[in-house]
Amino acid sequence: MAKNKMAMAGLGILLILILLAIFADVIAPYEEVAIKQNLAMRLKGPSAEHWLGTDEFGRDIFARIIHGARVSLKVGIVAVGISILIGGSLGAVAAYYGGKVDNFIMRFMDILLAVPSILLAIAIVSALGSSLFNLMLAIGIASVPSYARIVIASVLSIKDQEFIEAARAIGANDFIIITRHIIPNALAPVIVQGTLGVAGAILSTAGLSFIGLGIQPPAPEWGSMLAGGRAYLRDAWHVTTFPGLVIMITILALNLLGDGLRDALDPKLKQ
C-alpha cells in the first residue's frame, strides 16, 4: 500500500487528526479555551492569537475543532465497530445456515433498510435520550443492514468455492474453515465499507448534532459548530467554514484510505 500515494496522504491526514485529538488538552486546555466563553472576543476572524478565529461566544474555533475531533472520530469508529459486529455476525449466520434463518434475518434487515438511516438514528436517539453512547448506538444500528448485506453476499460466494471443499478434504474443522478460509476472504469488502462507513458515521453525528440530537452544548462537536455558526454566515464566514472544511477533509482522507485498503487487500494487486 506504501506505493499508493493517495492512500498514504489519507492515512497521513487521519494520523494528524488523531494526534491532535489525543493531545488536544495539551494544545488547548478544554476548560480554559474550548468551552470558556469570552463575549468580548465574539466572532473575530482568524488572527495570530486565534488561528481560525472565534465563534459566537468568543471561543477559539481551532481548540473546539480539535476537541470536537475526539468526539467525531470516537463516534465514527465505535459506531462502525458496532455495525460491523452486529451486521457482520447476522450476515454470516444468515449465509452459513441459510433457509429459514436466512429468510428471517434478511427480511428484518430489509425492514431496517426501508427506513432512511438518518431517520432511524433520529428515532433511536429520541427514544433513548441523547448521550454520546446512545448516539454511537443509534448510528451503528442504522447502518447494520448494509454490513449484513455485504457479509452475506461475500460469505455466500465463498462458502461454495472449491477451496473450501478442498479445506474440508484436508481434514480442517468448521472453526479452521471459518476463521482461516472464509473470514479472510470475506473481510476485504467489509474493511473497505468500514472506512467509508466511518466517514458516513461522522457525517451522521454532525447531522444529528446539527438538529440538536447529538452532542449537547457546550461540548464541541463539528456538526453543532456548523449549526451554531449558521446564523452568522453573512458576517462571520469562518465560524461555519472551518468546521465544514475539517469534516470534508476527514471524510476525504477516510475515502482515500478506504480505496487504498481495497487495493492493498487484493493479493492480485500485490507486487
Binding site: Q161, E162, F163, E165, A166, A167, A169, R180, H181, P184, N185, P267, K268
Partner: peptide, 14 residues
C-alpha cells in the same frame, strides 16, 4: 483428494 480445477482449489488470500 485432488480436485479438478487447480485454479479454484487454492485459497486466494493465503
Amino acid at each position: 483428494m485432488i480436485f479438478q480445477d487447480p485454479m479454484t482449489s487454492l485459497n486466494p488470500v493465503m
